[in-house]
């Protein structure tokens, strides 16, 4: 538990809490971006350089942008006037508090955790590349297929059907 870790972790958690509780959706999305960047910093703090940079590239550069685009396309960029919480929100919060208590208790009292003070492992880009091309080549191919399928699927779902084009043009 070093000082940088505590600082980054608290910024990340605060931003995550803000992302889930602010009224304005665009503010939520920006707080979410801070969360993603904070998580990337945590990965870097844990010596996972490649994963940290990939996290920034994909989450900050793509997912966050996708989310703000979706917010603007669904015209929810303005601060809403009605309630922002779903009817049964109290149960949701209670269950998540329960989940956190259970997980936290388990983490603090577990005896199965590996012993700390291991030396910083080597995770060079070369190693990762070699693993990707040898042991993990099948998952890599499957991910490629999944991304292609997701891309085609997203385009088809978001594409306007020809019939509804006229009526669906303006709400």
């Amino acid at each position: 538990m070093s000082l940088p870790f505590i600082l980054i972790a608290s910024v990340t958690l605060l931003a995550a809490a803000a992302a889930m509780s602010l009224r304005n959706l665009v503010h939520c999305a920006l707080a979410l971006t801070v969360t993603f960047a904070g998580l990337a910093a945590l990965y870097l703090n844990l010596d996972a350089q490649f994963a940290g940079f990939a996290q920034i590239l994909v989450y900050v550069g793509a997912v966050a942008i996708l989310i703000v685009f979706a917010i603007l396309l669904t015209r929810s960029g303005d601060t809403p006037n009605q309630a922002i919480l779903a009817p049964g929100w109290i149960y949701g919060i209670a269950i998540s508090a329960l989940v956190f208590t259970a997980l936290g208790w388990a983490v603090l009292n577990s005896s199965a955790l590996p012993k700390p003070a291991a030396p910083a492992p080597e995770a060079t880009v070369k190693n990762i590349g070699e693993w990707l091309m040898s042991k993990y080549v099948l998952p890599l191919e499957v991910i490629g297929l999944l991304l292609t399928a997701a891309m085609i699927g997203a385009v088809i779902i978001a594409l306007r059907e020809m019939k509804t084009k006229m009526e669906g043009d303006r709400p």
Partner: peptide, 15 residues
């Protein structure tokens, strides 16, 4: 992973 770093921080400009 310098090249990846460069492209990663470039993505933040869009935000």
């Amino acid at each position: 992973a310098g090249l990846l770093f460069f492209f990663a921080v470039g993505g933040a400009v869009e935000v």
